[in-house]
Every structure is written in C-alpha cells, then in structure tokens.
Amino acid sequence: MAFKSAVLSGITMERLNALCAVVEAGTIVIAAGPDPNRQSLFSRHIKDLEKAFGTTLFDRTGKTLKLNENGRRVVLATHTFFGSLDDVMNSAVAAAETVILGANEAILRWLILPNLGELMASEPPLRFEVRSLPSEAALREIQTGRIDLAVIRTEVMAEDLESEPIAPIQHVFAIPRTLLRTKEGAEVFEGRPMPFAELGSDPFFAKSARATAKALGLNILPIIQVESFSLLMSAVESGTAAAFIPTIAARSLPEQRFAQVSAEAMKEMDRSLSLVWYAKSADSRPSIRRALTRLKRALA
C-alpha cells in the first residue's frame, strides 16, 4: 500500500517529534529551551509540517499556539506511530513495553494501584506509567495521543473513543468516632453540627456532596478544604472532620475508630466509570491490547 504522506518531503521524524514536544510543553520556547537558534528550528519544523500537510496545525493568537483538530489528528497519529516503533524495539530486546494510563487520583490510588501486581505479572511484561488527571484532562490527553488509556467519568465520554464500562465508584459518609457522643454513626442525623472536610479540586463532587448532605438532613460544618481524595482521607484519619469518601477507600478505616454511614440518597453521588482508548492505537500496538485485557479483568 502506498501512503501519500510517506513521500512528502516536508514530513520527517525529526519534525514530527518536534511537533509532539511543542504540544507536550505547551509552547515552542519551553519545548526548545533557551537557545534562540533551537527555538527558530522548532518554529520552522512546524511551518514545514503545515506546508507539507497543506493545512494549519495550530490556531494562532499572537505568540499563543492552540492545537486545532487537524493538529490533534496529526499528533495522535504521530504518538501512535512512535509508540508502535518503541513497542517493536522493546519486544526485540525482551524489554517491558510501556503503556501510559491516566485517571484521577482516587481511581489510581484505590482502583488501579492495588491491582498493579496483576497488571504487570503476565507475560509478555508490561510497564505502566500512570498520570493523575481529572476526567476532562484525561480525555484531552487521550485525544492527542499523550496517554494510551484512561479511566474517566462516563458522562464526559467522546464519540470517537472506544469504551468499556467498569464498576461505579460509590461513597459513604465516614466519621471519626471521637466526633460522636454515642460513638454510633446514626447520631449524625440528630442535627448537631458536624465538622466536615470538602474536596476543593472537584466542583462536581463538592456540589454533589453538599446536595447529598442536605437531602440526608446532615448539619455539616465545613472546616477544611483539600485538593485531593488522599488529603480528604487524611482529614478523616486525623479525627478532625467527617467526609464523603469512596467506599473502596473507606475499607482501610478501622471500625473501632471510624463510623460509616450509607443511605439511599448517597446513590446520587455514584460515579459511572469507563475505560477508554482509541481503536486505531490499540489495533497498531499489541501492548495496548494486552493492557486492555488485563485492566478489564482486574477492574471487572
């Protein structure tokens, strides 16, 4: 099969690599470093690629570059191409092939990492690089090929991705027993103010938590706002505040020190999750297909 792009003089591996570096760094200056000559070289590489493809790859506002849809498709194809070559090289020397997985911090900590041994144990070996990303950011990263797989909230799914639903994340209200007079979790429904830890980095979750607390008749008193689920857990573990936390995280809390409350109204906080990927990337890279098989089995 003859590929038109293979005979275009303006398309080289060096230029494609420079394009990916600029997208990864965000600007030509950061990607090329402080050397003005290298910055000019990177700028020429991008212009040469645009000339070869016959279209712009970025929308330009002053010196700001924003990857457009054509650019996104070129970067995705380039990542897939280079990733496939890396897989071949690693396979030739029996080295573990690398798959990049993105998900939010809670999913990585309590869903992915506990299964890491199973994910890496099978032959041929795989090496996972995990990146902590909110669902929206993970979606953008997979659309440009900067990550290979992602676990995201189902509602932010894009139509051009393949997906597999996985078990939803459920939540409980976890309370240090030192904050309870009777040490029983049902006490939280009596209306007494309850010191409460909020997740500030996720407006969707914070809004859902407040609405659920109101529906349950909980008199929450926010005393601390944190930026991750790990810190939310730390606030609870310190005995300082109660919080809504994932059920899978709450399993590590000793019953003698913490009460856990579940209620029907908390189902509104459930998060449907999907494992997502690009079909073409999986078709061209056996390492991604193997990672998908292992993840589906581990997260079932």
Rank of each mutant, 00 (worst) to 15 (best):
P168L: 06
E97M: 09
A92I: 01
T212G: 01
F258D: 00
I28L: 13
L41Y: 03
A96Q: 04
G239T: 10
S163L: 07
F81K: 04
N17L: 11
E155S: 14
L273Y: 02
P134R: 07
P222K: 09
A2E: 13
S43Y: 04
S201Y: 03
K63F: 06
I30T: 14
V22W: 12
P246I: 14
R140G: 00
G191E: 09
R271N: 01
R257F: 00
E198G: 00
M266V: 00
A213P: 02
V93D: 04
A21Q: 15
A242Y: 03
A18P: 05
I46M: 06
H171Y: 15
A95C: 04
N104M: 12
A167C: 04
V276D: 01
T64L: 07
D148S: 06
S43E: 03
K280N: 03
A96W: 03
P34M: 13
T144G: 02
T293F: 07
P254R: 03
L41S: 05
R294S: 07
T154M: 10
V188M: 08
R294I: 07
L149W: 01
L57Q: 05
L67E: 09
A282K: 04
I112T: 12
L161C: 13
E255Q: 09
W277G: 01
E105G: 12
P165N: 11
G62R: 13
R153N: 12
Q256K: 13
L199I: 11
E164K: 07
S9L: 13
R131I: 05
T61F: 12
A209H: 02
N90Y: 02
L218V: 05
E159P: 05
M89Q: 07
L67R: 10
T144H: 02
A150D: 02
V75D: 06
